[in-house]
Design a protein around this nucleic acid. Structure first.
Lengths: 147, 147
DNA sequence: GTTACTTGTGTCGTATACGACGCGTCGTAT
DNA sequence: ATACGACGCGTCGTATACGACACAAGTAAC
């Protein structure tokens, strides 16, 4: 149990660092090209709307693996910028469909690479064995936790 | 490049889910035993103080792989609860040493398992090959990103 | 039809998390 | 001695992120 604890600390350090590198800094500061001032979750939400179609807040939360309240806040900020709209569903007034506004449609082509451009490029440059190691490691970890 | 993108989405989904399972829910709601109302970062910071000794805010930030401002905020909230103190260094007044208060010392034995109890137990129950797969996967991913 | 349950939404409070900024402090070069 | 750069700290503004809550709207039970 002793040395396993070091593994646990190592795993946590890896996950923290990966999150920082991928989730929070993947879009804006990498200097790739001039950007829009959007954060990774915001780009991910817009991208989901474009690629998988408009959806309700709850559906978006499910797609992005976020809670309802978090997703609602992201929609709030995008709506304040005029990038998405909330359209009440006439058939069932509980529903509110989130739609991207027209000006976003064109811009979206630029982000069709997804919010994970850096990760995608890294995986593309990796060997098949490396990709396999990455995916198997993550899958193994999750399987261990759900056991 | 096409199928690689699916790998990227898969990796991101794994990381998101792992973060939720480990970072945010590892301490409180697992029903292990009655808890203190402390969050995982708070427990991690206290644990670092006890195990590795008292330190400055910057040093703590480095240990926890967090930014200085985030760490300062966590110390703020722990200080408000009387769990840590800020002691100005008499030799160099730029420094402020963070110390755990006396009542915390005993309690700390209960959390010496670390904030990652669930992860530690999972890794302990895993085979050597599984542990290797997990660590290699994470290390490979980080190496790919820093290439 | 009225009641009870479910579902979807938005909001509130709190805790991370970061970069940017200003302030005080120390060492050092001028 | 003084100016200056480096360092540590705290604070601000903003964005994520969650659970808990209240409310509205539909559904089901009776």
């Amino acid at each position: 149990m002793a040395e396993v604890f070091e593994d646990a600390e190592s795993v946590m350090a890896h996950l923290r660092a990966l999150r920082q590198e991928l989730l929070t800094t993947s879009i804006e500061p990498s200097g790739d090209q001039a950007r829009s001032g959007l954060t990774a979750p915001q780009v991910g939400l817009i991208r989901s709307l474009v690629v998988e179609g408009s959806a309700t807040v709850t559906e978006l939360a499910r797609r992005l693996s976020l809670s309802h309240s978090t997703t609602s806040g992201i929609v709030d900020r995008l709506q304040a910028r005029g990038l998405v709209t909330r359209e009440p569903d006439p058939h069932d007034r509980r529903y509110t469909r989130i739609e991207v506004t027209a000006p976003v449609q064109g811009y979206t082509r630029e982000i069709s690479e997804g919010p994970y451009g850096r990760l995608t490029r890294a995986l593309d440059a990796a060997s098949a064995a490396e990709r396999k190691a990455v995916l198997e490691g993550l899958e193994t970890l999750r399987a261990l936790l759900s056991r």
